[in-house]
Design a protein around this nucleic acid. Structure first.
Lengths: 213, 213
DNA sequence: ACCTGAACACCGTTCAAGT
DNA sequence: ACCTGAACACCGTTCAAGT
C-alpha cells in the first residue's frame, strides 16, 4: 500500500496508543511503515505537524450525542464524549496541551460546546465557562501530580508514614472518601466522580449566575 | 566557585527563565557552568531528577500570606501566590505537568491548601475541591489551545473571516467581553479575571454544598 | 572526591541523488 | 512524484580514565 498522509497519521496514532507518545519518532514510525525516515517528509512538513494531525484526528472522534434541548445535560454529554477519547488515547492530553492553536476538529468541538452553553447562558458567561472548563473541555482534568498510590504495599506504608509525620492533611485527604451525588462512593480517587463533580460545580454555578436578575 | 547541586539547579532555572525549558539540556547547562556535561551527573542523577529539582525549587517560592481565618479568602490568597510563580517562571507549568509524584515543596503547598479548605469544608469535600482546582492549585489554568490572537492585523482579519464562516459561536465568544464581579471588564481575554472566575465558581459552589443540611 | 574525554545509541532535519 | 542514502547538528547517558 502506498504511503499517504492519512496512513502516516493513522500509524502514528496506533504507535502512540501502543507505546506512548515518546515512542513516536520519525525514525520509529518510518520503520513501522517499512520505509526510510525521509519518506515521511513528503506527507508531513515536520514532526510538529504530524503531532498536530494526530491531535486533529483524535479530537474528531469526539461524537456529540443528539441534543436534548437541555443545555446543561447536553454540555455534560459533550464532556463525557470528550472524556472517552482520553481512555482510548491516553497520550492525547499531552499532545493537546502542547499545541499552540486549535485544529479544525478542535474548533468544531469548541463550536458545539459554545452553541450548547448559549442555550442557557449569555455570550460573556459562556466565554467564562469555556475558560473555567479548561482542559476538561478535552476530557482530561490535568491532575498534575498524579498521586497514584504505590502498588507495592511496603512502599505505600512507608509513604503513608512519611505523610503522617509531615503532611497530615494530605494524608487525611488521600484517605477521605469520594463524595458523589448519591452519597459516599468509596475510598480513594474516583476519576469519573471527580471529573463530573468539577463540571457540575462550574455548570451549576454558571446557571445560578445566569438567573440572577 | 565549586559546582554544587544547588548551583546546578539555580543555573538551570535561570536558563529556563531566559530561553525556555527546551533550552535546558545537560550539554547547554554544563556549558553555562563552564564544565563538561558529565560533571553534572555528580550532582544530579539524570535529567529527570534535575527537572524535578527545578520544580521543587520554584514551588517552594510560593509564599503563603498570613491566614485571616476566613477559609475562602485564605484559599484565594494561596492561589494568587501560586499564580505569581507562573509569571516569573513561565516554563514551570509544563515541567510541573510532567512530574509523576509531588515534590516535598509541592506537598507543603498541598498541605497548606487542604488545611485552609478544612477551615470550612469536610475532608471529602476538600478532597473534591482539590481535584476540581486541578492545575489552578499551581497557578495555571491549562488553557490548552492558547488562542492568542495573531499580532499581524491582516492575519487576524483572515482568521476572523474563517471563524465567521465555519465557527460563528467561537467568533462570538472570542469577541465577547470578560465579565468580572464588577461588571464588564473589557473585550478579549483577561487571564486574571478568568482564573478567579473559575476559582470562585469552585469555592462558592463548595461553600454552598458545605452548608446544605 | 570530583572532573574529563571519548564513545554509544539515539534524535529531527538538510541536501543531493536516485527511479 | 515519490523514495533513498549519507550527512549534520544535536540529544541523554555509559564507561574508563585522569587528577
Amino acid at each position: 500500500m502506498a504511503l499517504s498522509r492519512a496512513r502516516v497519521v493513522a500509524e502514528a496514532i496506533a504507535l502512540a496508543d501502543a507505546d506512548g507518545l515518546d515512542a513516536v519518532s520519525m525514525r520509529s514510525l518510518s520503520e513501522r511503515l517499512g520505509v526510510v525516515p525521509m519518506a515521511l517528509y513528503k506527507h508531513v512538513r515536520n514532526k510538529d505537524e504530524l503531532v498536530t494531525e494526530m491531535v486533529d484526528e483524535v479530537v474528531r472522534e469526539i461524537a456529540p450525542s443528539r441534543p436534548s434541548g437541555q443545555w446543561k445535560a447536553d454540555a455534560r454529554a459533550l464532556l463525557a464524549a470528550a472524556r472517552a477519547i482520553q481512555h482510548s488515547h491516553p497520550w492525547a492530553w499531552a499532545a493537546i496541551a502542547t499545541r499552540g492553536s486549535p485544529t479544525p476538529a478542535a474548533l468544531d468541538h469548541m463550536e458545539a460546546m459554545i452553541a450548547t452553553l448559549r442555550g442557557g447562558l449569555s455570550a460573556p458567561l459562556a466565554h467564562q465557562v469555556m475558560h473555567a472548563l479548561g482542559s476538561r473541555l478535552w476530557g482530561f482534568s490535568q491532575e498534575v501530580f498524579s498521586s497514584a498510590p504505590p502498588s507495592d504495599p511496603d512502599v505505600a506504608a512507608a509513604a503513608a508514614a512519611m505523610l503522617a509525620q509531615h503532611w497530615p492533611f494530605v494524608l487525611e485527604s488521600a484517605m477521605s472518601a469520594t463524595h458523589g451525588p448519591d452519597g459516599i462512593v468509596g475510598p480513594g480517587c474516583d476519576d469519573e466522580a471527580e471529573f463530573f463533580f468539577a463540571v457540575d460545580l462550574i455548570l451549576d454555578g454558571a446557571e445560578r449566575l445566569a438567573t440572577i436578575p
